[in-house]
């Protein structure tokens, strides 16, 4: 464990807290992509199958349960709970996620760390996480303006993987034979997708005024 990875995990937890607060207190899922939340649920449920045999640390096992529980709760609330379910707009939030899941599944089959079923599923979850934010970014693009809490949610989510990139650099230089090309590649793509958002997020927050984040 190093400070970058710890801060990354805290940023990830913060993103869950912000989103859960928004949809439970704000009683609205407007501006939130259910598609992205469904992808995250698939990512965590598939990657953390090793909950039952990989006890590398209590910290990991605990957070795996937290992430599965939170992502499932968010999908449940937006899909089934009133009044949030009525604030979800299927016409707007209509990114074809099958075009993300399919290629990631093929990639997981072909490029993985071991030819075992779990390793293929694990690689699939790493690739899928890298692109899971796309439906959310498309939804924000369509709406042009980003609601304040939503902008903090996306920023925390982007920061989490950006901090993980720093963690991988740190581990590469401090540990022997540390090699994780799959997560390095996917994590770079994942963080890259946020660069445009971060630019607009920074511009809108720079003056200290909480001007709404505008996406062109």
């Amino acid at each position: 464990m190093n400070i970058f990875r710890f801060l990354g995990d805290m940023s990830h937890i913060l993103s869950f807290v912000i989103l859960l607060l928004k949809i439970t207190q704000g009683k609205s899922a407007a501006g939130i992509s259910l598609r992205t939340q469904e992808l995250y649920m698939i990512v965590f449920c598939s990657r953390y199958l090793d909950l039952f045999w990989n006890f590398s640390s209590l910290y990991n096992s605990f957070l795996k349960v937290v992430f599965i529980a939170c992502s499932s709760a968010i999908v449940y609330i937006i899909r089934f709970k009133s009044p949030q379910k009525d604030t979800w707009n299927p016409e707007l939030d209509n990114f074809p996620i099958q075009y993300l899941i399919g290629p990631c599944a093929v990639a997981g089959l072909l490029i993985n760390q071991d030819w075992t079923p779990f390793e293929m599923i694990w690689a699939f979850s790493i690739y899928l996480e890298a692109v899971a934010i796309l439906p959310q970014l498309f939804l924000l693009q369509k709406q042009g303006e980003v609601e304040n809490l939503t902008s903090h949610y996306v920023a925390a989510l982007g920061a989490y993987r950006g901090l993980y990139l720093m963690n991988w650099v740190y581990r590469y230089f401090t540990e022997d034979d540390y090699l994780q090309r799959i997560v390095w590649f996917a994590g770079t793509v994942q963080t890259g997708l946020y660069i445009d958002f971060f630019y607009h997020y920074y511009q809108s927050k720079r003056g200290g005024l909480s001007r709404p984040v505008k996406l062109p």
Binding site: H12, N60, D114, T116, W122
Partner: peptide
């Protein structure tokens, strides 16, 4: 033989 990869990160 190669030991299975250990995933020590989330």
């Amino acid at each position: 033989g190669k030991e299975p990869p250990v995933h020590d990160e989330l």
